[in-house]
Design a protein around this nucleic acid. Structure first.
Length: 329
DNA sequence: TTCTACCCATTGAAGCGAAT
DNA sequence: ATTCGCTTCAATGGGTAGAA
């Protein structure tokens, strides 16, 4: 007895956490065996008593009385589905390197039992082709968010792929001075949203392509729109921006064929204003940022989508179509 | 067979005051 | 401040009976 009696309780908790779940129910003798592996000799009834103690403390343990098979830890910090979402997101994220993804997934795995962890992770496929090669991503995210919090400007170097598929510095390694405003996800990429020192509009930078971040002791530049203390909402901004190209905000009216309802909802959300236009079409009115990204998004639907208003955006599309016509004539 | 419930004896741990 | 000795208390395990 002695020290071992206290260790036993903790070991039992650990055993329940690591080795039990709804599909692997442990009997008292299973637990006794596992305790023995750790050098603790325990008696049947004291195991039961310990489990009841854990339950009384608040652990959600399914008892023999309830399931007639044995014991298992029912709820954990994360449910299987929640964990799966997190793990999938990590493995799909282009900004996180393969190495960092694997480390993160290993940590996430510890939030459930060994069995379930193995099951979930076995289904995850990490696509190395799309993964960033920048191991400094965490550092970048950290430095950038501190800068945002402290209302400071940052210096960094920005990289891009050249046609030889090599990463090289943009603008010959010149430093970018940016007032950072937010970090946000868009289609598996992590972006910094901020204002470049030389310009007055919002720009986006892929966080995984940013290098050598340095926090400056200068206060952030304020955009005119936000001078009156209005809070910058990253999520809202990303929603209104298409494929991370900036442009002017305009109200547009677009006619879509009915079968395009899903991509439209994906893009505009369920709150979008839309109404029927005959039997085969519907009309959408929405405020968006007009950009190359938006036009490419619209053109992917070919003749199944038609932008009706405003005229100047229609003209932009006409121009684009003319360019295409020249290539494919 | 496996678990729970109850009673009982044993024993280690904790609490506390006194001594060093 | 630490150690010793004493008492008290709670945890453990043995036994038995009973339920599923």
């Amino acid at each position: 007895m002695g020290e071992k009696t206290k260790l036993k309780l903790l070991h039992i908790l650990n055993i329940l956490k690591e080795d039990s779940d709804e599909e692997t129910i442990l009997t008292t003798s299973d637990i006794i065996d596992k305790l023995q592996d750790k050098g603790i000799i325990a008696e049947r009834r004291s195991v039961i008593r310990d489990i009841k103690t854990l339950e009384a403390f608040g652990y959600d343990i399914s008892l023999y009385e309830e399931n007639k098979q044995g014991y298992y830890l029912r709820s954990r910090e994360f449910e299987e589905e929640e964990l799966r979402i997190l793990i999938d997101t990590v493995s799909a994220s282009k900004s996180i390197t393969t190495k960092k993804s694997k480390e993160l997934i290993d940590k996430l795995k510890k939030l459930t039992s060994k069995n379930l962890g193995k099951k979930i992770v076995g289904q995850v496929y990490v696509d190395e082709k799309i993964k960033s090669k920048n191991e400094r991503i965490y550092y970048n995210v950290n430095a950038l968010s501190s800068a945002i919090e402290e209302n400071k400007k940052v210096n960094f170097k920005y990289t891009t792929y050249n046609i030889n598929k090599q990463l090289e510095y943009r603008k010959k390694g010149k430093t970018y001075k940016v007032s950072p405003y937010g970090l946000g996800w868009h289609e598996d990429n992590y972006y910094l949203i901020g204002i470049h020192e030389k310009y007055d509009n919002i720009s986006h930078y892929r966080v995984d392509r940013i290098k050598d971040v340095e926090i400056l002791d200068e206060r952030r530049k304020i955009l005119k729109e936000y001078e009156n203390g209005k809070e910058f909402n990253v999520a809202d901004y990303i929603n209104k921006t298409f494929n991370m190209f900036t442009g002017e905000k305009k109200i547009v009216k677009i006619r879509f064929e009915n079968h395009l309802i899903n991509p439209v909802i994906d893009k505009f959300g369920t709150d979008v204003f839309l109404r029927k236009d005959g039997d085969e079409n519907f009309l959408v009115c929405a405020e968006i940022l007009i950009s190359k990204g938006f036009i490419s998004w619209l053109l992917q639907f070919g003749s199944s989508a038609e932008l009706i208003e405003p005229v100047e955006v229609r003209d932009m599309i006409k121009e684009k179509v003319k360019e295409l016509k020249n290539i494919y004539k």
